[in-house]
Design a protein around this nucleic acid. Structure first.
Ligand SMILES: [Zn+2]
Ligand SMILES: [Zn+2]
Ligand SMILES: [Zn+2]
Ligand SMILES: [Zn+2]
Lengths: 158, 158
DNA sequence: AAACTTTCTGCGACTCAGTCGCAAGAACGG
DNA sequence: CCGTTCTTGCGACTGAGTCGCAGAAAGTTT
């Protein structure tokens, strides 16, 4: 499902391949979850121990500019980090649960229609589309509702 | 169009009103554009010169928690700042131009439909919805296309 | 209006993501 | 294998945001 491999994309654009870039790219590609620059560094260092923070950021910048990866905020659930994922065919939406920190992905034709509408109506040439929702997943939703009621009860002045 | 004033909301929630909070809130409310914490501090200091950075952040946190303001990234067009705006009835979309830095707001019923679909399908209780698009505004779009062609021409190895 | 409790503020020191300039090192085409 | 050009590691730096604390205010009670 994943179009062409990132490495091939770089080669085809005449970009120099280094072992550091291979390491970072490999980690991003195999990642099962959304990684921030720090985790990316830790994981890639297993492949390339001398790898430096700066190089990771530079590689991220490169891949972002080439539109091969997307940058996410994930509602900054844990600090002001940014997260990265390989760009896929259709954009997808990220749902971040304030309760348990779960991140869920969601796709919908409506999203594409909305983007299409914006392109048409506003004449805006979309390069990056980021839709992130914060709230409560099904599990936390009920728990959270309970807490809210609890709070209301006790805070009402008698 | 702006529901109830922020100050009233705070009072009704039994939150202590201080001159610092008044200053920050007043600035956010009168703001013509999206302000980051730094600008917010500068402007609010005109009303309350002793105002400290920390207090601004604490007030932002408070208003965010009460869902009276929204936090934006605006595609981090100029550094890793965050921007704030008073929450309005319907969520709106932000378009950020990579060319000129313009920020445009956009609303669409499709956006509400999309959120409604997510609530229904994923059982997710949405608290914050942030849709930001990066790309090129109509003016910059043509200019940008021109440059791309230029680049292609000169970068072809003879 | 003074006293009292609770919350808020300013301050200063701190954290932590991300950036930058530079000199040494590696890629790759010839 | 060589030379040009790009990339890296390092270290120092920036700048947003946080935190604990002691003193200052807010709102409430008498
Ligand atoms: Zn961000
Ligand atoms: Zn949850
Ligand atoms: Zn953000
Ligand atoms: Zn523009």
């Amino acid at each position: 499902m994943q179009r062409r491999q990132l490495l091939d994309e770089l080669v085809s654009k005449g970009i120099r391949l280094t072992s550091q870039r291979r390491a970072v790219i490999s980690v991003i590609q195999e990642a099962k979850s959304h990684l921030d620059a720090g985790s990316l560094l830790d994981l890639a260092r297993r492949l390339e121990p001398s790898l430096d923070r700066a190089t990771v950021y530079r590689t991220i910048g490169l891949l972002k500019k080439l539109r091969l990866i997307d940058e996410l905020d994930l509602m900054h659930l844990e600090g002001e980090k940014h997260y990265y994922e390989v760009r896929t065919e259709g954009d997808h939406i990220h749902l971040a649960c304030f309760g348990c920190g779960m991140i869920q992905e969601f796709t919908s034709p409506l999203f594409d229609r909305l983007k299409e509408e914006i392109t048409r109506t506003a004449g805006f040439e979309i390069r990056v589309a980021r839709l992130e929702l914060g709230g409560f997943c099904p599990k936390c939703s009920s728990r959270h509702r309970g807490e809210e009621e609890e709070k209301t009860k006790t805070s009402v002045k008698h």
